[in-house]
Amino acid sequence: LAALHAEGPLAGLPVTRSDARVLIFNEWEERKKSEPWLRLDMSDKAIFRRYPHLR
């Protein structure tokens, strides 16, 4: 499970980098069924690119 911001401008976004990794992994797991070539990237760089508020 990932903790998400409940309200405000960040509502629905992950609270920590660990939470972001959970979301990225879950999405990758779903997408790899139809796109088996996808690589999993959970590096800090990938997290910041996707969720800049975690910098």
Score class of each variant (00 low, 15 high):
13 L>Y: 06
35 E>S: 07
4 L>W: 02
12 G>E: 04
44 D>L: 14
49 R>T: 14
15 V>H: 05
23 L>S: 02
13 L>E: 04
11 A>Y: 11
38 L>D: 04
31 R>Q: 09
3 A>D: 10
22 V>L: 15
46 A>T: 10
52 P>T: 02
22 V>C: 11
9 P>Y: 10
4 L>Y: 07
37 W>N: 13
26 N>I: 14
19 D>L: 03
26 N>F: 14
36 P>T: 06
18 S>C: 15
3 A>R: 15
12 G>K: 06
12 G>D: 04
45 K>W: 12
15 V>K: 12
1 L>K: 14
48 F>R: 05
34 S>W: 11
53 H>P: 00
7 E>N: 12
52 P>D: 02
41 D>N: 08
8 G>Q: 04
45 K>N: 13
33 K>Q: 12
50 R>Q: 08
32 K>M: 08
27 E>L: 07
42 M>F: 09
12 G>N: 07
24 I>V: 07
13 L>C: 08
40 L>W: 03
47 I>R: 00
42 M>A: 06
10 L>G: 03
19 D>G: 06
45 K>T: 12
28 W>S: 01
43 S>N: 03
53 H>A: 01
17 R>P: 12
31 R>N: 08
49 R>P: 01
40 L>S: 02
8 G>L: 03
48 F>E: 09
54 L>E: 00
27 E>Q: 07
20 A>S: 01
9 P>R: 07
6 A>P: 12
34 S>L: 15
7 E>H: 12
8 G>I: 04
54 L>D: 00
15 V>Q: 08
49 R>I: 13
26 N>S: 11
18 S>T: 11
4 L>Q: 06
6 A>D: 10
52 P>N: 02
26 N>R: 15
38 L>T: 11
39 R>E: 15
39 R>L: 12
11 A>R: 13
4 L>D: 04
11 A>G: 07
48 F>V: 11
13 L>A: 03
45 K>F: 12
54 L>C: 02
12 G>V: 03
22 V>F: 10
16 T>L: 04
25 F>C: 08
10 L>I: 05
18 S>P: 05
7 E>C: 12
14 P>W: 01
9 P>Q: 07
8 G>F: 05
9 P>I: 08
6 A>M: 14
48 F>W: 09
50 R>F: 06
50 R>D: 02
41 D>T: 04
15 V>W: 04
2 A>M: 07
31 R>M: 09
33 K>W: 10
50 R>V: 09
36 P>V: 04
23 L>G: 01
28 W>H: 05
33 K>D: 09
20 A>P: 00
9 P>N: 08
55 R>V: 11
28 W>V: 02
35 E>P: 04
6 A>G: 12
20 A>F: 06
14 P>S: 01
46 A>D: 03
16 T>P: 00
45 K>M: 13
55 R>A: 12
40 L>D: 00
51 Y>K: 00
38 L>H: 09
12 G>A: 04
30 E>V: 14
4 L>T: 10
3 A>M: 14
6 A>H: 12
13 L>V: 03
52 P>M: 02
29 E>I: 15
9 P>A: 10
55 R>M: 12
26 N>Y: 12
31 R>E: 04
13 L>S: 03
18 S>I: 13
44 D>V: 08
37 W>P: 03
44 D>H: 07
7 E>M: 10
25 F>E: 04
12 G>S: 05
17 R>F: 14
41 D>K: 04
4 L>E: 06
